[in-house]
Amino acid sequence: MIELDNVGYSYGGGALLSNVSVTLAPGSFHFLTGPSGAGKTTLLKLCYGALEPTSGRVKAFESDMRGFDRDQMAMLRRRIGVVHQDCRFLDHLPVADNIALPLVVSGRDMLREAENLRELIAWVGLSERADALPPELSGGERQRAALARAVILSPDVILADEPTGNVDWEMSMRLLQLLVELNRMGKTVLIASHDLGLIRAAKSQVQARVLRISNRRLQLAGADL
């Protein structure tokens, strides 16, 4: 699905990541962990093309992202669902419209998708809040809305950046549950998180691999988790 081959990323100050090689196989479940500032978000951004690697190459669905023009990049975003750390909604539109946004921008027939949208909103438990504006939502509700928006186009890959960052343990478990269900439906999942409790909880439900960033490199963490 997504393949990083000897990828390095550096900005003005110096190298953040170097020699990162990883393949997200179809249907796999990965955690990405590491201390704050280690480059988890950067690595995710490299995966969905928001950043370009300074060395090495990133392949998505068998094609090199470097050759993508802006329209191809837009098409790629429709195949990769992203749950951002800060969610990023259109604050003037109600939650249901925000969740439906990927459908709208890709020109889908909204009447035909109405039923799917309703089911998806029910699945993330936001039926009661569908008409609220994003700023009125709690942290957990925002995360669930962001997850619903990420999966509405039925993408092959789901990338989530600290999806449980601002929510309590119970809500974390609920979000994890949703992601595990998606993985069981065959989606490739990559979750960036520094919450070791969450990772342990996931390991009991799903065959998850843990990638750890330390010293600018990516390592496969052992059984100690």
């Binding site: 329209d71 837009a74 098409m75 790629l76 975003r77 990023r88 946004l101 990927p102 890709s106």
Partner: peptide, 16 residues
């Protein structure tokens, strides 16, 4: 700018 960024992130083409 924020709106445009969100639209790009969810896969909107420039033309849209």
């Amino acid at each position: 700018a924020q709106v445009i960024e969100v639209l790009r992130l969810v896969g909107a083409r420039d033309v849209y």
